[in-house]
Design a protein around this nucleic acid. Structure first.
Length: 771
DNA sequence: CTAGGGTTAG
């Protein structure tokens, strides 16, 4: 067991390294070095500068930095003839608060004599950048440490979820002040260990009001309003934060009457109090009330405006949001971001984009919002292009943009790009926690690289239920049912409980592998073993499982007895089973029900016409086509794509646009000859087995997936798998043909269709011709 | 340069 673990850890590191290598090294910032090395401007009469003057200069630098004018601060700094460590520190902390960690670090490394504050500033910069190991190195290296140094390390650990390390720091530190005590308390609170926080809180009595508020805030965040209120009532002194915390607690949780009562009782009503009320009403969808409070507010800041704008935008009232946005006296970056998010989520991506271009400055949230906007509106390529632009803009990727990038790569199955993102992730020094790790795992699964997915999975030191589910479902969708079940069995040995998603994965794994008895066993023991009630999805899995195994009768009985109304997916499972087993009558009935529920589902017409074709009812095949035309069912054009050397090549049926088309077509002709020699017979009569529209054999040969596969064989070096993605289900003839092709050329071909993965190898497919 | 409350992404 132990050696297995370290073996995977090693493979995980190797994967990291290969991803890192695929990145180009970043150019060094030589320009800055030149500017710093340049001699300070010679003053005609070198008059001795007074201490008061130095202080004035330093304050000016701090002021410039506070207003975000890094360049003016730098010119001031350069012009100074006497720089004290305070000047250097002002530059460093200025850069840090303006998000320029790299420049801050360069100043820190170059400053002649670092004082205690310089070290502390730099450590806090690392912490704010979530670079804990960097912070720790500095902390261990610094010649002298004061309480601030210890506290910075402490809060660094707690804010990033390392509560054990934080506790170690806390226990070791020689002098503790009230900030240290509050630090460890906040650590427990922020990491969800509210009981531990409570215990600590009871172990001493001289807590400051800040800590009372902190614990109360913890209860509020966990919606434990009664506990929060108990603290509020007994705390020895209350400040405005105490009042605002309890008020916003009630407001956020829908208890607006109580919130309003406290609002009136409160001795101080500041901007926070008013905004809490507005946002409370907003979050409960009570926009009129929110607006009344908003209008009555004696003073508003940008956050108050933003809360109201967010309210309108969450209700898709972008007209009203826009009105406020235009009217507000000073917008901050959040206002812009709120508007962009609103437009993106109302499918008005063009408006989001023009605001994005209008806004004065972008932060990581603006980028995440616009990128997610494009990705969610189906423009994955555009989203990925923006990532590159984001880097050019100097915005560093954070956990959010990384996960967003990974899921976008997963959507279009861009494995090479995904690996580059993986490389950047490693380079940026992110620890493989669940948040990032799950996205990475899912990317490898959806990009068809199931082995690398498993490497990531084994390498992850922290796994949550999502991690396990992703791996199980990943294996199931790739047709590796046994592996999926193995993962599930090892999950049962951990303390993490399976949930309903896990069981959908497990059941579909059984179904794809034909493990009828095992699946049935899991299905009926779900409730007893894990306390999971079967949902409609689980019944659909079971109907699929029984149907595929040819037990169509049992499948129908189960469907009749299920406590839900069958939906299109359930009938779809039955239709699929009927197709495999050639039960036309049952198939027709299922199809009819589906057409009633989802008249536009073109995939189902295809499935039904396949069924007719399989039983030789050719006139019905023709009728289906007419029916589709009459009902105006919009055919989704089928296309496939493949990534070669970082570029995505897209093919549609009979494609004649690709620059390499002559080579591809010639190669397909040659392949065809070989395939026929091996015994392949094309099934040209199955006219509608795909929504791609063609009838003749020579056209069928050029289905988009065949074109993409042929292109892949021609361009991807041998030994590497060919990964092709198709937006619809793969058609039967292509599936058959690709099996032959995999044997003839001796290559592994991995095809992702709209439903699942097919691994073609040596003439057979991992789906066992069941899909 | 290290604590607690209101807005924006995933």
């Amino acid at each position: 067991m132990q050696t297995m673990q370290s073996c995977y850890a090693k493979r995980f590191r190797q994967l990291h390294r290969t991803c890192l290598r695929s990145l180009q090294s970043q150019p060094l910032d030589n320009e800055l070095q030149r500017r710093l090395d340049r001699n300070p401007k010679k003053v005609e009469k070198p008059s001795p500068i007074t201490e008061a003057e130095i202080v004035k200069w330093n304050m000016a630098i701090t002021e410039k930095m506070r207003n975000g004018h890094c360049d003016s601060a730098l010119s001031l700094f350069e012009t100074m003839s006497h720089r004290t460590s305070v000047s250097w520190n002002a530059m460093i902390s200025g850069y840090l608060s303006n998000g320029r960690f790299d420049l801050a670090r360069q100043f820190f490394d170059r400053m002649p004599e670092r004082d205690l504050v310089s070290w502390n500033v730099m450590i806090s910069g690392c912490v704010r950048n979530r670079n804990l190991s960097g912070a720790r190195i500095l902390f261990d290296k610094m010649p002298k440490r004061d309480t601030v140094s210890w506290n910075t390390m402490l809060s660094g650990y707690t804010q990033n979820g390392y509560i054990d390390e934080a506790r170690e720091i806390f226990d070791k530190m020689p002098n503790k002040n009230s900030i240290s005590w509050n630090g460890i308390l906040a650590g427990y609170v922020q990491n969800g260990r509210i009981e531990a926080a409570c215990q600590l809180f009871e172990s001493k009595s001289d807590w400051e009001v800040v800590s009372w508020n902190c614990l109360m805030g913890g209860y509020v965040r966990r919606k434990r309003l009664i506990d929060a209120r108990r603290l509020f009532d007994i705390m020895p002194e209350r400040d405005e934060v105490s009042w605002n915390t309890i008020i916003s607690g009630y407001a956020q949780n829908g208890e607006l009457l109580e919130a309003q009562k406290l609002f009136e009782d409160s001795p101080i009503r500041d901007v926070f109090t008013w905004t809490a009320m507005v946002s409370g009403y907003v979050q409960n969808g009570m926009l009129t009330e929110a607006r009344r409070f908003f209008d009555e507010m004696p003073e508003k800041n940008s956050v108050s405006w933003n809360a109201m704008i967010a309210g309108y935008s969450q209700c898709k009232r972008m007209d009203l949001a826009r009105e406020l946005f235009e009217a507000m006296p000073c917008r901050n970056i959040s206002s812009w971001n709120t508007m962009i998010t609103g437009y993106a989520q109302s499918s008005e991506i063009d408006r989001a984009w023009s605001l994005f271009n209008e806004m004065p400055r972008h932060d990581s949230i603006s980028w995440a919002a616009i990128i997610a906007g494009y990705a969610q509106n189906g423009c994955s390529e555009e989203a990925l292009r923006l990532f590159i632009e984001m880097k050019r803009d100097g915005e560093r990727m954070n956990r959010s943009t990384f996960t967003c990038a990974l899921s976008t790569c997963a959507d279009i199955a861009a494995l090479d790009l995904g690996k580059q993102v993986h490389g950047r992730l490693v380079k940026a020094g992110y620890e493989m926690g669940c948040y990032v790790g799950n996205a990475l795992l899912s990317m490898y699964c959806k990009c068809g690289s199931i082995d690398e997915a498993y490497t990531v999975f084994e390498g992850m030191t922290q796994k949550d239920v999502v991690t396990w589910n992703t791996m199980i479902t990943g294996y199931a969708r790739h047709g590796f049912g046994k592996e999926a079940l193995k993962v599930f069995e090892s999950m049962r040995l951990t303390s993490i409980n399976p949930d309903d998603v896990t069981m959908v994965g497990v059941l579909s794994a059984c179904s794809h592998t034909g493990l009828v008895n095992k699946g049935t066993e899991y299905f009926y023991s779900m409730d007893k073993d894990f306390g999971i009630m079967a949902k409609a999805q689980h019944y659909t899995c079971m109907i699929d499982l029984l149907g595929r195994a040819g037990r169509l009768e049992d499948a129908q009985v189960l469907m009749r007895n299920m406590p839900f109304e069958p939906d299109a997916a359930t009938w779809g499972a039955l239709l699929g089973a009927s197709r495999i087993h050639g039960n036309t009558k049952l198939g027709e009935e299922a199809a009819e029900r589906i057409f009633e529920m989802e008249p536009d589902n073109s995939g189902m017409y295809v499935l039904l016409s396949n069924l007719y074709a399989a039983s030789g009812r050719w006139s019905d095949v023709g009728n289906m086509r007419l029916l589709m035309r009459d009902k105006g069912v919009r055919k989704v054009p089928g296309y496939s794509w493949i990534e070669v050397q970082n570029k995505v090549h897209t093919f549609s049926v009979g494609d004649s646009m690709h620059p390499e088309k002559d080579r591809i077509y010639a190669f397909l002709e040659e392949l065809d000859m070989w395939m026929k020699r091996e015994g392949y017979i094309s099934s040209t009569k199955m006219v509608l087995h795909d929504v791609e529209e063609e009838e003749k054999e020579h056209m069928l040969k050029y289905h988009s997936e065949k074109l993409a596969v042929a292109f892949g064989i021609l361009t991807i070096p041998s030994g590497r798998p060919i990964r092709v993605i198709k937006n619809l289900r793969v058609c039967e003839d292509c599936h058959n043909a690709i099996k032959y092709i995999s044997k003839i050329v001796g290559r592994l071909i991995i095809l992702r269709d709209s439903n699942r993965f097919h691994h073609f190898d040596g003439g057979s497919c991992s789906c066992g011709d069941y899909w």
